[in-house]
Write a protein that binds this DNA or RNA. Structure first.
Lengths: 349, 349
DNA sequence: GATGCTTGAGAAAACCTTTTCTCTACATAA
DNA sequence: TTATGTAGAGAAAAGGTTTTCTCAAGCATC
């Protein structure tokens, strides 16, 4: 009360109870104790339950470090990413975590920004901690992480980032996603569909634009019109100005490269007195809820299913860790169209 | 070439090179090898450099599991959160990670949603893996994580979540943040300042409103007006309608409870032909870049410095792990006003 | 020449668990 | 009685590292 030391938190580090403690307390050897707790070996049922009871009462928790050392398996994986804001990485992480938690595997999250030094530090730390494998993730499918993950001696899976040649990778099927959007417009009877998207330096911009053109050609509707710009609301605004100030027929549908552009497009249309979806339909990309749901009207948009992608990546990594062989290659996982209110209903609906 | 097995990735798991390998290859004992690599013990400089060279050449990397087992320290911490989208947690995580990486500590990210079962699973996994400590984080200062972290036997720090009594916690100083905003308005010569904020069920709503009222009283400007609603753009719109449709004097400044509300307010004002910042100044809260920077004009907003908060939490946890004593209590860390263009310049500036 | 100090290096214990092997006691079969 | 078998349990090794202790050799001092 009076020495003044009551008021500090001493890092309560009572010595964890070990198997030996359990064994001694139960009057058996550690070997027997271990076997009792792991349902191994032979002993009377009485011995087993007695040891179990003692362990429970003492609050015994096996030391994972010792187990890992012996099993040569740490039940730990690393998730490397350069997606600081987690917009793409967090859904992937959620999927990975979900797939692994049931197997008792924990995930180190390592943000390497775009800094090779940071990347190396994280990789070194993970290797020293003997992670069972690494999942490389990111924010662009055409930019490689600032680290070399080949020849690490442990399994590596690429998820939503630029993979090494001959590795195992999961990416979104951007062409498929774009098809979904454009075909949805066509099914709704829209005919003058334009595509407003991001910078031409992005690979996905060309993939999606290609699919967009292909669908228009297949369906025999109006010639394609692709406007490349930035991934921003501002660009959505500008694009609308350019499209609707031009002479001639106006678009009745805008397929946007991401939800922010779509948001800008919707706002700009409203400012011009055009109704969404009645006059113009709009579809976004990414299904970034916070943007898509806040737009008026809420955006119909393409979801890349990143959580499912993360789950696949996690499960595949587990297979590799378990020694199963997996064919290398890039797996494209399908997107999904989330229908909200920015497109209107099909004519017949 | 012909057995078809070339085309699968065998999980290349070559046996890692151990200290014993190094020792044998250098013709010394493991003890000597260990000491050579750790700059311990006595030996000729020649022996030391020779062993080092061998280790380097063999690509030796000490097994962290073995080290941890011996040192009773895993150089690993867990970050628990229920902030699925990472809006608050990711900045905290970034700070934590930044503070710890230099010390060779890696971070398990564990999203427990609001599910006690999930929380328990993650905590169990972390305890088995012998994390050195846990940082509990979240998305609300007045909601507790769905797990009991008292009496875990390892240090726990709370960062931006509701702390246990008598624990160590770091939270944002919401009163201070609100003062910053309101005083900024006052300094700019605004006199009819209203506060549009979130649901009254949030503790921070009352803290910020209290500070708002206090500043108005201190400065002797117009009576306070607080509108509580939702944390959404939509509510920002509605609030503007309510404020500017009412008879009497109109506000010349709106202090918003978050950036989304502010975004809604700014958009609604523009739709009414009111200019921001000339006619009405707007300040947001959170400095959620993606919203604040995309608003036209870009939002002046209160930043809670969550990365710094995470850094403090990380460093404090390290102190505890190192056995230093730390006083329990809640530390409020200052916010910071990020000035963009939604308030105009001070009259004299 | 005996004693003590220093230098360089190795042996062994410790960390905690799992697993294989060994051993004792007892029961059954020959 | 001897051989065989089995149930129950413990001893010990292994996993990879760090650290303390021990030891031998070389050298200086008295």
């Amino acid at each position: 009360m009076s020495d003044g030391s009551d008021n500090v938190i001493q890092p309560a580090r009572r010595r964890p109870v070990t198997l030996r403690d359990v064994a001694e307390s139960a009057g058996v050897s550690v070997a027997t104790a271990s076997k009792a707790l792991n349902d191994q070996g032979r002993m009377t049922a009485e011995t087993r339950t007695r040891i179990r009871a003692v362990a429970l009462q003492l609050g015994f928790r096996p030391n994972g470090l010792a187990q890992s050392l012996l099993r040569r398996r740490s039940f730990t994986v690393g998730l490397l990413t350069n997606d600081t804001y987690g917009r793409f990485s967090l859904p992937v992480m959620a999927g990975v975590s979900e797939a692994l938690l049931d197997n008792g595997v924990s995930v180190f999250l390592c943000n390497v920004e775009d800094d090779p030094r940071l990347g190396q530090m994280h990789v070194d730390a993970m290797l020293e901690k003997r992670v069972d494998g690494i999942i490389a993730s990111g924010k662009r499918l055409d930019r490689h992480l600032p680290v070399d993950l080949s020849n690490l001696g442990i399994p590596v899976i690429y998820a939503f980032t630029d993979p090494d040649p001959n590795s195992i990778a999961f990416v979104s099927d951007d062409e498929g996603g774009a098809r979904l959007a454009v075909e949805h417009f066509v099914a709704l009877g829209r005919r003058r569909i334009v595509h407003v998207t991001g910078p031409e330096t992005f690979e996905v911009v060309h993939q999606r634009a290609g699919a967009y053109r292909a669908v228009l050609a297949e369906q025999g509707v109006a010639p394609p019109q692709v406007l490349m710009g930035a991934w921003s609301e501002g660009w959505g605004h500008q694009a609308v100005a350019r499209l609707f100030d031009a002479p001639g027929e106006k678009p009745d549908a805008v397929f946007c490269g991401n939800d922010q552009i779509a948001r800008g497009v919707v706002d700009a249309l409203r400012e011009r007195g055009l109704r969404v979806p009645e006059d113009v339909g709009v579809i976004g990309f990414d299904n970034w809820e916070i943007v898509a749901a806040a737009t008026r009207p809420p955006l119909t948009t393409v979801d890349m299913n990143l959580t499912a992608l993360g789950r696949e990546a996690g499960l595949t990594l587990l297979s590799l860790v378990d020694g199963k062989a997996v064919e290398p290659g890039i797996r494209k996982l399908p997107c999904r169209l989330v229908v909200r209110q920015s497109c209107g209903r099909p004519p017949g609906g």
